[in-house]
Each structure stands twice: as structure tokens, then as C-alpha cells.
């Protein structure tokens, strides 16, 4: 047992959870009042959209690509959600579906021409931003009431005769992690999708279509990008084309923090959600430490480097 706990394999998989736990303990130590329903809800508020965007990025990374446009894309869907979806639901839903279809098309284009995804998505980030600006030139709009209702939902259930009220972001994050885990890690087609990142040649040799796989993964990323945008306006009530620009960086960092690898189809949905939570909490922690908000971004970079350094250390130990 002790050997297992010290094995590089276990340490690698435990790293995301341990990082989150340490961060949480540090927060509760510096600010005990945060250990409440209200406190957790507040600190973790933005977990849901960030986790959804991180999952979107994870789908792309699974097939060895990278999406540098997910932030502006989330911004665009937020703008659609706060305008078209509110004023003309049918048209709004169609616009969101078109967004997902566009993502699938990008996957097809990247596979067909064997293009570097980083450049294609970089270009698309302009396009998403441009459309968002056209739809909503100045910050504003209103989120549909039903989205706000969902995001403000108070979960209650009975456990051993007690009423348990988990903070909504924690509840939602758990649901997201479980659903994606079942779909990608447990289902029989999910295996093929992940295999395409591990050894694409073996997958096509076994008779699967890489084009279909890429399109599926990009479409899934588009779907989760849409969900991220909608959940975001559920929290903010209004939208802005630039509302989610940071999400590109957050999503990449979240996947990596969660133990996902850059290539080779090694990803973890649960890890990605934990990674997104860690990033969200890092900001709150700094506020509690009374460190100026200037260092918010820096701290996120620092945590990312720290976790990657730990992982490099574990790998190095394993290699010896």
C-alpha cells in the first residue's frame, strides 16, 4: 500500500486533487469565514463557466490540437445568449447550433488540410470576436430568466436524515465531471476518440475514420463552449464581446493543471474540472491574503509552473 501511494503513477494522478486541497486549506486557514455555504458559493462562483470552457479545450487537446479561440468563442455565445436567445429564442438556438457546426467544420478543415490548429484557431479568434462585436457593440443585453434560474439553483438533498446543501458550483462541477467522464472515459466510442490522440495510425489501421473523430471532438468542444457562454451570462446577467477573453488561457491551464497532457490523448475530465476550480480559487486566496489583485494572473501562472515542476520531478524520479 505504501509503495502504491509513493508510486509515480499514483502521485501523478493525485496531484490535481492534492493541489486543490492544499489551496482550500490555505484559504480556510487565512480566512475561516470562507468555510461557509455563502463563502464557498462566492469564491467558486465562476467555476461552472470556466470548467465548461476547460472541458471544451480538453476535447481539442485529446486529439493533439490546441484551441486558441475558445475564449472569444465563449464570449460570442454569451453575446448570443444575452441578445438573440432572449429576444427570439428560435433564432437564438439556431445561431448557437450554427456555432457548434462551425466548430465541427474547423475540425474537418484542420484534418483535411493537415493544418496547424494553433494558427487556424488564432485566426478564428478574430472572427468570433468580430461577430460578437457585431451582435453586441457595447456591453449589455439580458440573460434569459431560465438561465439565471438554473445558475441560482439551490440544491438540497437528504443524507442520513440531514438536509445537505452543497454550493451550487460544486454540485454543477461534479455533474459536469461525471457526465464527461462517462462519455469520454467509459463509453465505447469515447475509447476510440481518446485512442485517436494516443496513436492515430493505429486507429485508422483499425478502420476508424479520423475525419469523423476530429469533427466529433471539435463539435463537442463547440457544444461545451456554448454551455460555458450561457452559464457565464447566467451569473453576470449581461454580456460583452470581451467577457471571456481570458478563458483561452484559463482553459489550457485548467486542463494541464488537471493532469492532462499536451499530446498523446492523456486527459482527465475530473482533473480538468478540479484544475478549473483551482484556478478560480487561486484568485480568491490572493484576495484573502490581501495581496494586490495585480498578482492574480501571475499567481495563476505561478501555480501552473509549480504543478508542472512537480510533475516533471515525479517523471524524473520515474525515469531514474
Amino acid at each position: 500500500m505504501k509503495n502504491y501511494l509513493l508510486s509515480p503513477k499514483f502521485m501523478r494522478s493525485a496531484l490535481p486533487g492534492v493541489s486543490l486541497a492544499i489551496l482550500l486549506m490555505a484559504i480556510f486557514y487565512t480566512q475561516p469565514r470562507a468555510m461557509s455555504y455563502f463563502g464557498l458559493n462566492l469564491m467558486l462562483q465562476y467555476t461552472v463557466p470556466i470548467a465548461l470552457a476547460t472541458i471544451a479545450q480538453m476535447f481539442i487537446l485529446t486529439v493533439n490540437d490546441l484551441d486558441l479561440s475558445i475564449g472569444p468563442f465563449v464570449g460570442l455565445t454569451a453575446c448570443i445568449g444575452a441578445t438573440l436567445l432572449q429576444t427570439d429564442p428560435v433564432f437564438g438556438v439556431m445561431a448557437l447550433l450554427a456555432c457548434i457546426a462551425a466548430y465541427a467544420g474547423l475540425g474537418a478543415l484542420i484534418h483535411w488540410r493537415n493544418l496547424p490548429s494553433i494558427v487556424v484557431t488564432l485566426g478564428m479568434s478574430f472572427v468570433w470576436l468580430g461577430i460578437a462585436v457585431l451582435i453586441l457593440p457595447t456591453p449589455g443585453g439580458t440573460a434569459p430568466a431560465w438561465i439565471k434560474a438554473i445558475m441560482g439553483f439551490k440544491v438540497t438533498f437528504q443524507l442520513f436524515g440531514y438536509n445537505v446543501v452543497p454550493p451550487f458550483p460544486v454540485f454543477a462541477a461534479a455533474i459536469i465531471a461525471i457526465v464527461v467522464h462517462l462519455g469520454l472515459m467509459r463509453s465505447s466510442y469515447g475509447v476510440v476518440l481518446r485512442g485517436a490522440g494516443g496513436n492515430p495510425r493505429a486507429i485508422s489501421r483499425a478502420g476508424w475514420s479520423m475525419l469523423k473523430i476530429k469533427m466529433t471532438m471539435f463539435a463537442l468542444a463547440g457544444l461545451f463552449g456554448v454551455l460555458a457562454g450561457l452559464s457565464l451570462i447566467g451569473l453576470t446577467s449581461a454580456a460583452d464581446a470581451h467577457i471571456a477573453d481570458r478563458y483561452t488561457l484559463y482553459s489550457i491551464a485548467g486542463v494541464i493543471l488537471g493532469g492532462g497532457e499536451f499530446v498523446g490523448g492523456r486527459v482527465s475530465p475530473a482533473g480538468a474540472v478540479i484544475g478549473a476550480m483551482t484556478l478560480t480559487l487561486a484568485g480568491s486566496f490572493l484576495i484573502f491574503l490581501r495581496i494586490s489583485p495585480d498578482w492574480q494572473v501571475g499567481a495563476q501562472g505561478g501555480i501552473l509552473i509549480l504543478v508542472l515542476a512537480l510533475r516533471a520531478l515525479i517523471n524524473w524520479r520515474e525515469a531514474r
Binding site: V119, F126, V127, L129, G130, A132, V133, I135
Partner: peptide, 14 residues
């Protein structure tokens, strides 16, 4: 408008 400018820039890169 600013939106069209952004879209054109992106499409040209792609």
C-alpha cells in the same frame, strides 16, 4: 464596423 474588420482579419489568416 469594428466587427467586420475583425472578421475579415481572421478569415484572411485562416
Amino acid at each position: 464596423s469594428a466587427g467586420i474588420r475583425l472578421i475579415m482579419t481572421g478569415l484572411i489568416i485562416v
